[in-house]
Design a protein around this nucleic acid. Sequence first.
DNA 1: TTGTACGCGTTATCAA
DNA 2: TTGATAACGCGTACAA
Lengths: 321, 321
Amino acid sequence: MANIQEIARLAGVSTATVSRVINRHPYVSDLTREKVLNIIEQLDYVPNSNAKSLKNGATKVIGVMGVTYNPLLMSLVRSFHMISQKYGFNIMLFMTDGDRDKELVALEMLRSKQVDALLCLVRTIEWDIIESYTKYGPIVTWQRLTSDTIPSVFMDQYQGYTLGLEYLYARGYRKILNVYSSKGQNTLERIRAYEDFVQKHGLKNTGFPQFHNKVTIHDGEEIARWWIEQTDKPDAISCSTDEVAAGILTEIQRSGFSVPDDVGIMGFDNTDSAHLLDLTTIHYPVDKQAENAFNIIMSMLENSASNLHPLQFRLIERKST
Amino acid sequence: MANIQEIARLAGVSTATVSRVINRHPYVSDLTREKVLNIIEQLDYVPNSNAKSLKNGATKVIGVMGVTYNPLLMSLVRSFHMISQKYGFNIMLFMTDGDRDKELVALEMLRSKQVDALLCLVRTIEWDIIESYTKYGPIVTWQRLTSDTIPSVFMDQYQGYTLGLEYLYARGYRKILNVYSSKGQNTLERIRAYEDFVQKHGLKNTGFPQFHNKVTIHDGEEIARWWIEQTDKPDAISCSTDEVAAGILTEIQRSGFSVPDDVGIMGFDNTDSAHLLDLTTIHYPVDKQAENAFNIIMSMLENSASNLHPLQFRLIERKST
DNA sequence: TTGTACGCGTTATCAA
DNA sequence: TTGATAACGCGTACAA
């Protein structure tokens, strides 16, 4: 495959000149430029990007690390992808399935300079390990974290969850079942939101169990079957994700119950599933989060200041409540 | 950042020896190996992958080009990702939104050696342009294509669609509305399947319009509204995708009609939406397709022979018919 | 078993 | 306006 030297030889100039032409440097006579461009075209030449990366110490690739392909994550990835592309960056996707080794693969890519930065959407590995990689390049996360070295674009779940609970209260629901996702900061915030909510309105203890680690449609279906069996039923279910809510809703309806007449159901994230099933849910501005993440990365790469979008939850009222 | 030379210097050996240690070459004395490994550990050294790529002429990265984040595509990407990872390859994702320039970005990555191969899931750009890039590396597609240079893992839509139609016939449906997606080979195959089906069973012309370019939930909702207005209604709707079917199903139910009592609905692809809404649908073995794609790429990279999975459609009967 | 020295393809500095 | 040359960091003949 043709390289810059061959072009130089055929055009009767030096490689330096060819490089100047390619990178649109000034101080190249029109004549030589023309000549060089001709040869480039003839030989169907493109600069080898590995050589460029080696020279520049940058690849214009950003790694994105996530656990699995769920709709919310994908819409974030999509937004992040779009803005990155706009600035000439490409995305390398790492789906880790929560496997430490796979997470390390992504981190090692940063260390070995194959990606310029890393967007860490979800991780299972310890934060201090991730933190130890920040010396190799910018790492930004989407999860809740307060750190000097790893900026985060997370949103305070306390606010979002409270928004949903207060809405349910306003609609007259009093016996609310909470379905939480994996035990992390986010879930703790949601639990705190619920406790404060109960206290604020002086609600009495429902005695319902706490559901944890529920995130999928399948999980939702399980919870629906639990609900069906109860004699003293919750009048509303506040879910960890739209998928759980979707699972509950459809399974409950399959059994002949009606939503929202028999029970109100609230999702979280406002993904397609929520739209599809007319779920009341909490909208999450993932696109803005993605843009913020990218902006932070850029500013770290160029060590400049970044200006960020403000982030706010929004309640989307539909027919499940 | 430390490089191989520094390691060599500190270990009191040559760079060649360090390289041999790193790459587990034989003929290195235990003593020197030990010494080198120690220094490597001390300096927290990793080989720079750009330098390696430059040297090897390969990056161990495969590009995946798609149009947009739809569920079927994502499950394919997921499968492809998993098998690639297993063999030490990483994935670079290109979402093109059907934009020629963005598609060219992906192709240029192959030309400039930033990816070793390209999986072309969906494209809008002309095949002969893509074909002209095959000289830079393996390109495999998921779309229907018969080409010497671009292998395809597509599946004959004629078969799949016929499977669905025959099932509908067996269930007693006679006035079937077809909803097609974008006008491509796949759609032509489906149309042909329907025509043959009509002829085979001697069905009379339904007089229904042909819906084209319908792929989203939203499109489905539109079609549902059309269906509701009709006096002479189709008794079954065979859809281009599960999403369209989902849109139709939910919108029709919102208007008080019942599925399958008032109309049978059949999806295509067997994605999560189909499971969620209990849609009868056609299962597509995307995981096998992904593995085939990867195997083909590998065999092209190493020019060896590839052994492939056989691919077969399967009808998934649920409650929408 | 180890070292020397060159090439991979660019870009940037310096000098002309 | 152009050219020679030195990096960038690694792997590998070839020689020892």
